[in-house]
Design a protein around this nucleic acid. Structure first.
Lengths: 256, 256
DNA sequence: GCGAGTCGTTCACTAACCGTTAACAACTTA
DNA sequence: TAAGTTGTTAACGGTTAGTGAACGACTCGC
């Protein structure tokens, strides 16, 4: 298999680093990018010129923004992920019956997850924390934890060793051992909770979507404001719905 | 402004050409890509190795597929387009009241448009022709024509000169002069129809979303099977709804 | 209104690298 | 078995990606 340790195309990797910088900041300027990546301004200039004609970036009032061509690539690629095609109708259905926000999440590179799809029941009285395309660490959300709980033990160990458990709110789990025992409980229960661990304004429940070997393909999470997400509604009604939704997706995926 | 005529980063452009080939074919193999681009296999190999570690491509049973990292870039970038944020709730609403499929389209590079968002009312009895992320020529669909009709005259002229009007069905407009007079009518009417011009299974109506200077920011199109999309329902009910939806989006956009 | 500080851009230059040709193992196919 | 595939390495050479220096345009504070 090809590996791009130092065999790879460096210019492509530089272009990627520039795109990544644009995504993680708010409309950065050329020099801001150059400084962030420790590159010369002319180098960044050339890359941006290229990326602009390709439609990968666009200028917007003085800064750079990810361009429409990548939108096209992205939504095209998403459609080719079977879990997306299968889960999307269920996510919409779930959101409408719960009258809350539901999102579909898949494990990404390393210790991150990608939020593939979000649907919010109208009227949307909430401003969503998990936005489509967002990349977040695994330990601070219900979906992330339920994915983590179903990963291989050594992968989890590597995650625990290499990444620091950043603190998002007062409730975020930042202790290694606490997280470890939680993960065991989550695996037993089959669901994970987010009790204002990533934002004070939210609580959530997530159920995993597993393949035939028990590896996590993704997770479905229901999110809502704390007053609504508590007591029986949270721990019985919501759990039941999200678990049956995830099981449903699992079954459809394992058919072929 | 930067232009990448031959000043640009060639390696980045090569990587893009490879990604583009993957998108326009069905899970192509390494040699298939190399042949299509007239590149040596080792060159393609190096690029694919790099793109794979970046998550831009992934292998799937012997071929290459666009990877999840680009999904992340894409849905992130889409969220940062104001027209998307503003129009999406209206598209969902429109689809639900019409019980049809509705899509949001924006002009892309050159004479193409990108399908940014699609929502289909459940139950979906139809298989959709315009899929999210698809890139299509402007002349063969309602949304494309309504965008074309509102573009600058010289841009349209350039389009007519440079691009051949490909024939998708027996109804596709392939005559330059016929298209020209149609465009004038579309501008006057404010809507464009697709009467089985891109597929025999579909008809559609589209209304443009214009900025304050009358330039097209995008279009909203309602699609449905011919039996349902005809007569009064098509030419009065549907037209009224799609136009008021597009106007609504225009107003929200021009506020700030 | 004058410098000092930005910003983006263009210009040569050169070490590094991208893409080449050639050769290879692992599979299919005839 | 041999002649096709396929993807993969290795070494080489001409191109190029990234450098530093220098430039206009613009925004500051004084």
């Amino acid at each position: 298999m090809p590996t791009a340790d130092d065999y790879g195309i460096k210019a492509t990797m530089t272009s990627h680093r520039i795109l990544d910088t644009i995504r993680s900041r708010d409309r950065p300027t050329l020099t801001e990018i150059a400084r962030a990546l420790d590159l010369s301004k002319p180098a960044v200039h050339k890359h941006l010129a290229t990326l602009e004609t390709l439609g990968y970036v666009m200028r917007r009032d003085g800064g750079y923004e990810i361009g429409l061509e990548l939108v096209s690539f992205g939504v095209y690629a998403r459609r080719r992920q079977r879990i997306y095609e299968v889960a999307r109708p269920r996510v919409v259905e779930l959101a409408n019956t719960m009258r809350e926000q539901v999102c579909l999440v898949v494990p990404g590179q390393g210790s991150e997850w990608n939020c593939l799809y979000v649907f919010t029941a109208v009227p949307a009285d909430v401003d969503t924390p998990d936005q489509e395309g967002e990349i977040r660490p695994l330990h601070a959300t219900a979906a992330g934890k339920v994915i983590l709980a179903n990963m291989d033990k050594d992968e989890v160990a590597e995650f625990l060793d290499h990444d620091s458990l950043s603190s998002e709110t007062a409730n975020t789990i930042t202790e290694r051992n606490e997280l470890k025992s939680k993960l065991q409980a989550i695996r037993d229960q089959g669901v994970a909770y987010d009790r204002q661990e990533q934002s004070d304004d939210y609580r959530g429940v997530a159920a995993p979507v597993l393949d035939d070997d028990g590896r996590p393909l993704g997770a479905i999470e229901v999110l809502g404001p704390p007053p609504r997400m508590s007591g029986k509604r949270l721990e019985e009604d919501t759990v039941g719905l999200v678990v049956s939704g995830a099981r449903d997706v699992e079954n459809k995926l394992s058919i072929d």
